Simulated scan of single mutants.
Amino acid sequence: MSDGTGEAPSTRADVVAALDAVIGRTLREADLVHEHPAPGRWLVDLPGTKKLKTVCGLIVGEHALRIEAFVCRQPDENREQLWTYLLQHNARMYGVAYSVDRVGDVYLTGRVPHAAVTPEELDRLLGAVLSYADDHFNTMLEIGFGTSIRREWEWRVKRGESLRNLEAFAAFAQRGTTRRPADGGGASSADDGG
Rank of each mutant, 00 (worst) to 15 (best):
M1C: 03
D3K: 08
D3F: 00
G4H: 10
G4V: 08
T5S: 15
E7W: 08
S10K: 15
T11L: 01
T11D: 00
V15Y: 06
V16T: 13
V16W: 07
A17G: 03
A18C: 13
V22D: 02
V22I: 15
I23H: 10
R25L: 06
T26Y: 12
T26Q: 05
L27M: 03
L27P: 01
E29M: 07
E29P: 02
E29Y: 06
A30D: 08
H34I: 12
E35T: 13
H36Q: 14
P37I: 10
A38P: 08
P39W: 03
W42A: 02
P47S: 01
P47F: 01
G48E: 05
K51D: 08
L52E: 06
L52C: 01
K53N: 07
K53L: 07
C56S: 07
G57S: 14
L58A: 10
I59R: 14
V60A: 02
E62G: 00
H63S: 04
A64F: 07
L65S: 02
I67H: 04
E68M: 12
A69V: 05
A69L: 04
F70M: 14
F70N: 07
C72A: 13
R73E: 10
Q74F: 05
Q74T: 09
P75V: 07
P75M: 06
D76E: 13
E77N: 06
N78F: 02
N78A: 13
R79A: 07
E80H: 13
E80S: 13
Q81S: 11
Q81V: 15
L82G: 01
W83D: 05
T84F: 09
Y85S: 00
L86W: 09
L87S: 09
G95E: 11
V96D: 10
A97G: 12
Y98V: 00
Y98A: 03
S99M: 09
R102I: 04
D105C: 08
V106M: 06
Y107Q: 06
G110Q: 12
R111L: 13
V112Y: 08
H114Y: 07
H114Q: 02
A115Y: 06
A115V: 08
A116P: 00
V117N: 03
P119V: 06
E120V: 15
E121D: 05
L122F: 06
R124V: 08
R124M: 12
R124S: 14
R124L: 14
R124P: 03
S131A: 14
S131K: 15
D134T: 12
D134E: 10
D135A: 15
D135I: 12
H136M: 04
H136K: 10
F137H: 09
N138G: 00
L141G: 04
G144C: 08
G144A: 04
G144N: 07
G146I: 04
G146S: 01
T147D: 05
T147A: 11
T147L: 03
E152A: 08
W153V: 12
W155N: 07
V157Y: 01
V157F: 02
R159Y: 03
E161C: 05
E161D: 09
S162L: 09
R164S: 15
N165H: 15
A168F: 07
A173R: 03
Q174G: 05
T177A: 01
R179L: 13
R180I: 13
A182K: 15
D183A: 09
G184V: 05
G186C: 11
S188W: 15
S188Q: 15
S189Q: 15
S189N: 14
S189A: 15
D191K: 06
D192T: 10
D192G: 11
G193Q: 03
G194P: 00
